[in-house]
Write a protein that binds this DNA or RNA. Structure first.
Length: 417
DNA sequence: AACCAGAGCAACCGCCCTCTT
DNA sequence: GAAGAGGGCGGTTGCTCTGGT
């Protein structure tokens, strides 16, 4: 395809905009709207290409733009969303009212990236640069500090991912069934069972005996396995196949890697995800694949599933799902990368890898180190050994409240949440 | 006061996607 | 279905500002 740049016409001005040009553009758009950007410059009497006009408008002249220093909350939000979304600045900008993607991108590159680097956190992966900060041998104060910082960032990421999963679930719920969702994760030779249908409260994870199950949609899962050749096993109680998914979900299990922080989903998905083609159809780009409904459709198409209620399996590790679904306890049956990712992080918290925040049932009441235990021994995360101090809990709670409020207030058409 | 280096940011470039014909 | 137009997006560039010497 390809086409020539819109600015290659001779005589078109480039470079910084003058106040006069700004005024012309502003006046024209206020009176007529921008309409076709390509046609706009001539109509507005500007010697600029349409693209330049559009950029000037969207990044600078638009009346609903807030300029100036970023607040602490905005910074935190950017970091959180960057951990989740990577360099998808426009998506991030959707959650920062009145900020442009360009501004956020610049701010990230000039401030936040450096700050994270100074903290010993890789700004790309949002992980500590020296991995053994996780290790048991990190008795040094430096490592402890890193761990603390890292836990904060990881918590941020967890929150965002969980949010994403919730939204995905809400989409899918419109198309699904009433089958209870039950999910088991093998963790260090023990199964962790998540069964929202039997729990009304909190993230419930119980260790259970290993079972064998079968699953109609095994092929899809095998594809996942190929993509992520790590060890974890995911079982689905609704059927009887053992599903082996190397999904990054499992990274949390043994090597404590986590998904989205280490890898941007889009990049990973597009570059290495072997399930690029389902039934000869391309899976949606990750940009859109957050629209889980589309993924659901693709997977159904691939599996030839005619009955959504019985053929696929949903992973919903997010608290709102797991907490009482009331009569709506149906699992939507699709494997969502985001869901798995979030689950991995919940598991990560469950395993007590850091003083991690873990969701409780009330999304506005996130407690540090708390996790509901379905009577089976919730593991290290809930024993308080890795919890924050009380004041820090409050601080974190407050922080998350603000973030969640922000995300909740996100535009409905947001491509992310 | 002059010079230099680094930071900050507006704007450009080019790729990609979607929509229209 | 193919091709082109329009626009969005992320990466990069280069100018300006600021602080240090």
């Amino acid at each position: 395809m390809g086409r020539s740049p819109c600015c290659d016409k001779v005589g078109l001005k480039k470079g910084p905009w003058t106040p006069e040009e700004d005024q012309k553009l502003l006046s024209y758009i206020q009176e007529y709207g921008h309409g076709s950007w390509r046609a706009l410059p001539a109509k507005a009497g500007l010697q600029r290409c349409g693209k330049s006009c559009r950029l000037r408008w969207t990044n600078y002249l638009r009346p609903d733009i807030k300029r100036g220093k970023f607040s602490l909350q905005e910074e935190q939000t950017i970091i959180q969303l960057h951990a989740l979304l990577g360099n998808r600045w426009s998506a991030i900008a959707n959650h920062l009212p009145k900020r442009t993607d360009n501004e956020i991108k610049n701010y990230w590159n000039t401030h936040l990236k450096k700050r994270l680097t100074k903290m010993g956190i890789d700004p790309v992966t949002h992980k500590p640069k020296h991995h053994d900060a996780y290790g048991s041998g990190s008795g040094h104060a430096k490592d402890a500090a890193n761990l603390s910082h890292m836990a904060q960032w990881e918590s941020a990421r967890l929150e965002a991912e969980a949010r994403l999963v919730r939204e995905s679930k809400q989409l899918i719920m419109t198309t699904t069934n009433n089958h209870p969702l039950q999910l088991q994760l093998q963790h260090h030779h023990q199964l962790v069972n998540i069964n929202p249908s039997t729990q009304t409260h909190g993230v419930v994870m119980t260790k259970a005996a290993a079972t064998t199950s079968s699953l109609p949609c095994l092929d899809v899962l095998k594809a996942w396995q190929g993509a992520w050749s790590s060890k974890p096993i995911i079982r689905d109680n609704c059927s009887s196949n053992t599903i082996v998914s190397g999904m990054n979900m499992m990274m949390a299990m043994d090597d404590l890697e986590s998904p989205t922080s280490t890898l941007n989903f889009p990049a990973v998905y597009n570059a290495t995800y072997p399930m690029q083609s389902l039934n000869g159809k391309q899976l949606p780009q990750f940009k859109e694949e957050l629209d889980s409904t589309m993924v659901l459709q693709e997977i159904h198409a691939y599996n030839g599933c005619t009955d959504e209620s019985t053929t696929t399996n949903a992973w919903f590790a997010e608290d709102s799902l797991i907490r009482s679904n009331g009569g709506n306890d149906g699992s939507s049956n699709v494997i969502l990368p985001a869901a798995a990712a979030a689950l991995s992080n919940i598991m990560e918290g469950f395993c007590g890898t850091a003083d991690m925040l873990v969701y409780n049932s009330d999304e506005q009441n996130i407690a540090a180190g708390e996790i509901s235990d379905n009577g089976g021994g919730g593991g290290g995360g809930g024993d308080g050994s890795c919890g924050r101090s009380g004041s820090n809990v409050e601080e974190s709670r407050s922080y998350w409240d603000s973030i969640l409020n922000l995300v909740n207030a996100s535009p409905s058409g947001s491509p992310v949440f």
